[in-house]
């Protein structure tokens, strides 16, 4: 069993980062308690500076929580014991560990030696992962000549060489194009299934979260405000439908606002957010009063829901 857990409530404190790229100096995380079972993929949501990275750093042992306790795979992370470090890995989308001027293979050999892998074991592992990542032939090219997507995949390979059971991924798809994002996502899904690895993932791309995570943790201003399924989050917070109306011509904004919560107006195209119980009424009113060319009802984009949760600061 390798549960990832923060058990007692109250990871209180102010942690100063002297080094952070954004030069944000203070992060605070409070009352963040959760437990993750082996083999789970958990999405970690939060606006910039909400405390996601700070929490990840506490879980990997880079930061010592000033209060509360953290246990990952049976270890106290901050001790950074060798046995613990061999079980985990950290991938950061905006930072890279591969040597820029050399082929990824050189960095992989160093990592293999650091983790004490034999030649044969390392090669077998590299072959397996390169196959899963479709990186064959790319590992002998200088890293600087790889595309961003290939580089990220090579970073993943380097981070997973030692067969870690717990993966901490901080924005692993940052800056990648859609195809590369999909490839990384599919790889993570397959890796999780094949090795029963536990994954804690942060991402700004909701598609990553919806594709991979059955469970999400949402953190806002350093506090855990939601822990549960993604569907539950949408249902609890935004039991709303989106009504998209194409009108024959542009109406005045004041007129349009009579019918409900206007999300956007783009010429003659208007989007409303409507509560389910008001849906029929609103739609029939719209059709009766306005000259409607087309009308569609759908679930609002998840980004919008998340954005609203962050604005309001809590899940109702």
């Amino acid at each position: 069993m390798y549960p990832v857990a923060i058990k007692e409530p109250g990871l209180k404190g102010t942690i100063e980062h002297f080094f952070k790229r954004t030069y944000k100096e203070i992060h605070a995380v409070q009352d963040v308690s959760f437990e993750i079972q082996p083999g789970e993929i958990v999405g970690f949501l939060g606006a910039n500076g909400a405390g996601k990275t700070t929490t990840l750093k506490m879980l990997t042992g880079l930061i010592h929580p000033s209060a509360g306790s953290v246990t990952v795979a049976g270890h106290i992370p901050f001790r950074r014991e060798s046995a613990f470090l061999r079980k985990i890995t950290l991938v950061m989308g905006q930072k890279q560990q591969l040597i820029w001027d050399l082929p990824a293979m050189d960095s992989l050999q160093i990592n293999a030696a650091v983790y004490g892998l034999s030649d044969r074991a390392a090669q077998a592992r590299i072959d397996e992962l390169a196959d899963m990542l479709s990186l064959q032939g790319k590992l002998t090219q200088p890293v600087r000549k790889l595309s961003l997507g290939e580089r990220m995949k090579a970073e993943l390979l380097a981070a997973l060489l030692h067969e870690p059971q717990v993966l901490f991924l901080d924005e692993p798809t940052l800056g990648l194009d859609v195809n590369a994002q999909v490839a990384v996502r599919e790889f993570l899904r397959e890796y999780n299934q094949r090795f029963n690895a536990t994954i804690l993932l942060t991402s700004h791309y909701m598609a990553d979260i919806t594709a991979l995570c059955d469970r999400v943790l949402m953190i806002h201003q350093g506090k855990l405000i939601y822990d549960g399924s993604l569907d539950g989050l949408i249902e609890q917070f935004a039991p709303c439908r989106e009504v998209h109306v194409e009108l024959a011509y542009a109406y005045h904004k004041a007129k349009l606002q009579q019918y409900g919560d206007v999300q956007s107006i783009d010429g003659s195209s208007v989007r409303y957010l409507v509560k389910p119980e008001l849906l029929t009424k609103t739609v029939s009113q719209l059709l009766a009063d306005l000259e409607v060319v087309d009308l569609a009802v759908s679930d609002p984009p998840i980004e919008e829901i998340i954005g609203r949760v962050f604005q309001v600061g809590q899940v109702h």
Partner: peptide, 8 residues
């Protein structure tokens, strides 16, 4: 911030 990789 790549010191993180070294420390881990």
């Amino acid at each position: 911030g790549t010191l993180d990789f070294v420390l881990l």
